[in-house]
Design a protein around this nucleic acid. Structure first.
Lengths: 203, 203
DNA sequence: ATTATATTGGAACGATCGTTCCGGTTTAAT
DNA sequence: ATTAAACCGGAACGATCGTTCCAATATAAT
């Protein structure tokens, strides 16, 4: 006996994600959210609780979109392939609009660390999932021999995750066509390097 | 015939920087600024104009602190030394408090890109100064032979700047003692690598 | 057609936002 | 001691913040 909703919850959540993604949590007002979500004030509060709860759901939705990424990493048979797949899916295959938006998780980690640490940690933990997948991949590659024993899987994963985070910062600055490619290709050369003349590093 | 100020402008600006650095531009209220700056509302507005103008001055102050960094880069004679100096000054020599604060420029680039692009661009341009210094250094090294001709100075600089940006994101997550060191040491191996088996990269 | 229920738009809440303004206070120079 | 200039505290501005509430509306089931 109920009236049908005039809005689509999934669609509304997606639109909220887009706005939070662009403007950040603090700078995005509820009124702006209502506008892009095409939802009434009352419906938003009854459906999502409040602005903060909505953001938590948005983070969850955003992370669910990275499943494709994690799967690709898990399936890779050599380390360079894993990274290339990552880059391919996360950067090349993105439309400019999405690419230039950067990463909601990175944005959130930075924005809310000293404002709402709980939210910041949620974002950080989601990103850690990606790092774990990379560690697993590299460990698997080490076992199968496609990763040179000189490389530590964990350190290697932390390196690439950090590079990706940096690239998400750069992406938001709307870099030239080849900028990110140069970065990732340079990063990939760590696989082909020898370390002989690197023993006396002390820093 | 004037009364002496009860506040120290430089000190006040520094304190404002600290707060903006931690909380970001949007989430920091004028009242919070007055509290940490130990300045009256009237004095703040007559001295700095408004919140936005104050932030512009804060960005300028922040950038002036990187002069030491840029000098160190400029003086370096080989590329690895430049990067190590950068890491040493910008990360190792920092107190935990400062290190975990991340980078105000990176934070600002991300936070304000779609909120106040003008401010975001100021931050981005400051960071570009660092990148230029790195390019110059690498070009100099290429001339003097301490940089292998296989490396392109600009691409190499873009790589390390991106790594640094990523490391600033990571730093704000309060990483373990050795995390950042592992990242930078891995990044440095791009200098020692050969590229022979890397010809068929197509991505 | 009636009933029941969920959705809706909009008014209203107190709190806080950035900013302006003014009267009182302080102090350096006359 | 008087004057002039600058600082200071705080009230007040309108605007916006996130949230709550309610009456009106719309629709699925009876």
């Amino acid at each position: 006996m109920a009236r049908t909703k005039a809005y689509d919850k999934d669609k509304a959540l997606e639109d909220a994600m887009t706005l939070f993604w662009a403007q950040g949590y603090t700078a995005t007002s509820v009124q702006q959210l209502l506008d892009v979500m095409s939802i009434s004030r009352s419906s938003m509060y009854s459906e999502f609780g409040n602005k903060r709860d909505l953001f938590v759901e948005v983070l969850s939705l955003y992370f669910s979109l990275t499943n494709e990424l994690i799967d690709a990493i898990s399936r890779a048979n050599d380390p360079a392939e894993a990274i290339r797949k990552f880059y391919e899916i996360g950067f090349v295959q993105q439309s400019d609009t999405l690419l230039y938006r950067g990463c909601l998780l990175v944005n959130t980690i930075l924005e809310l660390r000293d404002v709402d640490n709980e939210l910041s940690l949620i974002a950080a933990q989601y990103f850690d999932e990606v790092e774990k997948a990379l560690v697993n991949c590299f460990q698997k590659c080490a076992s199968s021999g496609t990763l040179h024993p000189r490389h530590d899987p964990e350190i290697l994963a932390s390196f690439f995750v950090t590079v990706i985070k940096g690239m998400r910062v750069v992406a938001r600055q709307i870099p030239s066509e080849d900028y990110l490619r140069g970065v990732i290709e340079t990063a990939l050369t760590v696989f082909s390097g020898s370390r002989e003349n690197n023993d006396e590093q002390v820093v």
